[in-house]
Structure formats: structure tokens, C-alpha cells
Design a protein around this nucleic acid. Structure first.
Lengths: 145, 145
DNA sequence: AATCTAACTGAAAAATTTTTTCACTAACCC
DNA sequence: GGGTTAGTGAAAAAATTTTTCAGTTAGATT
């Protein structure tokens, strides 16, 4: 169990949630993943850790983790979306278009741009989501000769 | 009919598509919208222009416009998404969290950051999606006293 | 450790969303 | 105007998500 997984379990406890096997399976599936996981992905992977894990519980646990701010929604190219454990702080995701491997990206440089934008439009800017698409080094090696 | 709508119809013709009434209704619904439209939104609004418009046709027309690059997917706060006509060039969307009104944003300042990122990670960066959330001036006036 | 109890569970059913199928319609070329 | 074929809506099917509910289990109490 890695640090991230452990702190997540602590966070559940701290919020009065029970540490059930199905929940641990969902969390482990997410903690182990290297790409955004759809509900079906989490279900399939989670069953490796809890054979009876039901799809409904995946939906419920995802919702719970989102409410706790521990999970990010990552929009895939088309209209599908997956979930990835959130690291603390402000992060974005760089997703490989081919294999879906993701890495977290910190230190985005949009603050000045957004301040400008607020001034120009009169909107109060409350947040932003940046998703970056690319081809990871492994896939480049395999497919770009 | 505004310019945008007209050029869209031209683009359909240029690609060998027929200009049917249901398609025109979908396009007009999108051209008139001030917020991202879900499939259901487009269907409801489109029926004002073509009373028999079927939901299936909305799905098909949306798919067609996406393939032509004329439509952007705009992810709403949660897991829902809507569609908005794409302006030519590189644009992002600023969406009001309260009323969903959107405005298009040009001139994002990420190029340097993305170049850096490519260097650091070895990814070849192929695109990015930036969605900015905020509260529009009207909603600020109404709800922020 | 045994007991209690409410949070939690999975299965089934229901609701919703999206895709497929198909007979009919209408846009566009002549 | 007439023919052809892309395009249509309705209905059915498939896929996804939510609700319901009786049974189970985590964790507090003793």
C-alpha cells in the first residue's frame, strides 16, 4: 500500500466513513492505475481485490471520493470520462492519446492570463481545468518510428 | 441567420451533405444558444424550428458536426457535457457556473508552458483543452449582493 | 470475545441515455 | 417533374446510471 492509498484511507476514517473491503478495493484500483479509470475499469480492476465488488458500490465510492475532493474527473478525448486520484494542490493532467497513460502536471502559468480575462469580461474566475493531450515517450518510440 | 450559421451550412454542402430541415434546425439551435447545449437541449430547442425533429437525428448531426470540427465538446461541472459551435482558430470557453452562459476565450498563453512540459516529460504535446469556470457579470449582480 | 446497530452491501428493478434497425421521406441532380 | 439515394423518425435494443431493499459487516460497547 503506498502513501497515497494510506492517507486516503485515513481521510475516509476522519470523515466518519467505514473502511469496508469493497471501498478498499476501489481505492486500491485507483491507486494502482496509471490511466484515468472509468467506472467499468474500476469495477473490473477492483474485483481483483474484492471478488464480490458490485458495480453499484463503485458508483457510490466514486461519488464519495469526489465529494471529499480526492478524485479528479479526467475527460477523455471523446465524450467519455474517467477518474484519477487527486494529488494535493493544483494539478492538471497530461494524457497520452494512444495508451491513456497520465502524468500530473503542476505549475501551470495561467494566473496572469486569467486575471486579464477577469478584467476583460467582468467574470469572477473561480477555477479552471486544463487537459493536455500528447503522445508519451513509449508510444512515440513504438509508433513514430 | 447569422454569418456563422450560414458558413456552417456552406460547409455541409461542401462536404457533400444534404441540407435537410432537421439538420438546419439543429444548427440553428446551436447557433442561437448562449450556453453549451446537451443533446436533450438541442432536441427541445430544435423542435422550435422543425417540429418533428427526432432525437436520433440530433445525435447524428452532432456526430457529423464534431467530425467536421465545427463543434466543441464543453464539459460541464460534473460529468455532463454539452456542445457549442466552434469558432475558427484556437479558442477556449469561459462558462458561468450559475447560468451556464459561455463566452469564447482566445489568446491563451500556454505555449511556453507546454514547450517546457514537452521537454520535461518527453511527451509530444498534440493539443490541450482549457475550460474556465466563473460567475458572469449578470449573475454576480444578482447573487453577490 | 460476544453483542448490538446503523452504515454499507450486492442483486434486481427501474430509469435514463445512446445506438441500431428499418420502412418511409425528401433533397438534389438530371 | 421524376428518380435515386442520403437522410429521416419511430421503435427496439443495448448500455449506462440510479433506486430500492433485504441481508451483511465494520466498529463501538460492553
Amino acid at each position: 500500500m503506498d502513501d497515497r492509498e494510506e492517507s486516503l484511507l485515513d481521510s475516509l476514517k476522519a470523515h466518519g466513513y467505514r473502511l469496508t473491503k469493497p471501498r478498499q478495493a476501489v481505492i486500491r484500483a485507483l491507486a494502482t492505475a496509471v490511466k484515468p479509470m472509468t467506472v467499468a475499469d474500476i469495477h473490473a480492476e477492483g474485483r481483483r481485490y474484492c471478488a464480490e465488488l458490485g458495480l453499484v458500490t463503485v458508483y457510490r465510492t466514486v461519488e464519495m471520493l469526489l465529494a471529499l475532493g480526492q478524485l479528479h474527473i479526467v475527460h477523455l478525448d471523446a465524450e467519455r470520462h474517467g477518474y484519477a486520484l487527486a494529488s494535493p494542490g493544483h494539478v492538471h493532467h497530461l494524457v497520452c492519446s494512444r495508451c491513456r497513460r497520465i502524468i500530473e502536471v503542476t505549475g501551470c502559468t495561467l494566473d496572469g492570463f486569467l486575471d486579464d480575462l477577469a478584467e476583460r469580461t467582468g467574470y469572477r474566475i473561480t477555477g479552471h481545468r486544463l487537459e493536455i493531450a500528447g503522445i508519451c515517450p513509449e508510444c512515440r518510440a513504438k509508433f513514430e518510428s
